[in-house]
Simulated assay, not measured.
Amino acid sequence: MRNHHRVINRRRGLAALAAGVTATAAAVALPLLTSGSASAAAAAVSLPPAHAGFDYQLGGAYTPPAGVSVVSRDQGDSPAAGLYNICYINAFQTQEGAEDEWDSDLLLHDSKGQVVEDEDWGEAILDIRTASNRERIAAKVNGWIDQCAAKGFQAVEPDNFDTFDRFPSYLTKANAEAYIKLLSAHAHAKNLAIAQKNTAELSGDHAANGLDFAVAEECADWDECGDYTDAYGNNVIVIEYTDKGMKKACTGWGSRLSVVQRDEYVVPKGTSGYVRKTC
C-alpha cells in the first residue's frame, strides 16, 4: 500500500478561550459506539455541508476567504466565527519533538528498543497494538477532543489513521479500527462529528468505525475519490496539492464535493508559498 502525502502538522498550542459558532448543517442520527461493543445509543451530530466552500488552515489560522463556510484548523487554534469548524488532531502519532509528553510504553519500539518514527515528519508512532494501550492513548487524545468541543468546533479530524498501512511490520488494520472506535465514541458523546482522514481502503468500514464524513488528501490524484463517495456520498472534503490533481478533482468531482487546492505546508494567507485555489 502506498503512503499518502500528508501536510505538515503544527505543534500544539495552549488552549484558547472557547468561541461560539453557528452550525450550518442539519443534525443526523448516528450510532454511538462503546469501547468494546456495538452501537449502544444515538448521538446527534452536525455534518459539514456537502459541496461547500472549504479552507484547510492547519499551518495557521487566518480570516477565511469569501465563500468559505467550512474550515479545518489545528486544535491549538480557535474556530472561525459563524462557520462550520473541523478540529485537527494528530491521533496516531506524536507531534515532532513531543515524545516526552507520552509514557514511554505507549510509543512503538523496534526490536532494538528504539522508538519507531515517521521519518518524513519526525513523529513517533503510538503503540496501539494492545487494548490496554489503546485505552490509555485514547484517554489522552480524547482530552484534546474535549478541548475541541469546549472551543466550539463541530467536528474532529484525527490524522494518521493510515499509520498501520505505513508500518505493517508492527501495526494492523484491526489495531487501527479498534482504536478509532474509541475516538469516535467519545466524539459523538461530545456531539462532534468525526472524519475519516485518508485511508480509502477502510471507507467500507465507516459505519462500524463510527466515522461520519471523509477528509481525503489527493484522492483525485490517486483516483480514490470514488472509494470515499461510495461510503459517504457527497460528504467528502478533497484537498489537492498539485495543479494536476486539482484539475482532476474539479473535472470529476467539483460539482459534488468540497474541493480545494492548498500549498504543501498549508501556510497562512500572506505567507510566502501560500496557495489556495477552488474549482
Rank of each mutant, 00 (worst) to 15 (best):
I8Y: 07
C87F: 12
G252L: 13
D162M: 02
G82M: 05
P268A: 05
D165G: 07
P268F: 04
T34E: 14
L192P: 02
N3E: 14
D263P: 06
A61P: 05
Q57T: 01
H5A: 12
G13K: 12
K247N: 08
R10N: 12
I86E: 08
K277Y: 02
G204T: 09
D118C: 10
G233T: 06
T22R: 11
P158H: 08
K173W: 14
C219N: 03
W102H: 04
A61G: 07
D230I: 03
N160T: 08
A15S: 06
K151D: 00
L83C: 08
T271F: 07
V68W: 05
A187Q: 06
Q93T: 08
E119I: 11
G204P: 15
I89F: 06
F153C: 01
A66V: 10
K173V: 13
T63Q: 15
T94Q: 02
A26I: 10
T94S: 00
L211R: 00
C219D: 04
L108Y: 03
T63G: 11
G254R: 08
A40W: 02
L211I: 10
D223C: 04
N90F: 07
G36Q: 00
L182M: 13
C225R: 09
T34I: 03
C87P: 10
G76Y: 05
Y179I: 11
W222N: 11
P268S: 01
F161R: 01
G122R: 07
D100M: 06
Y84I: 06
I239Y: 00
W144Y: 11
F213V: 01
T63V: 14
T163F: 09
V21I: 11
S69C: 03
Y84W: 12
L182N: 04
N3V: 15
G97S: 04
C148A: 11
L202S: 07
A98Y: 07
F167M: 05
K247I: 03
D159K: 07
N85S: 09
P49L: 09
A220C: 09
L58G: 00
K151G: 01
G143S: 14
Y56V: 10
V156L: 12
P65V: 12
A200H: 10
H206I: 05
G60Q: 11
V116A: 00
A208E: 11
S132Q: 14
C148K: 02
H51T: 01
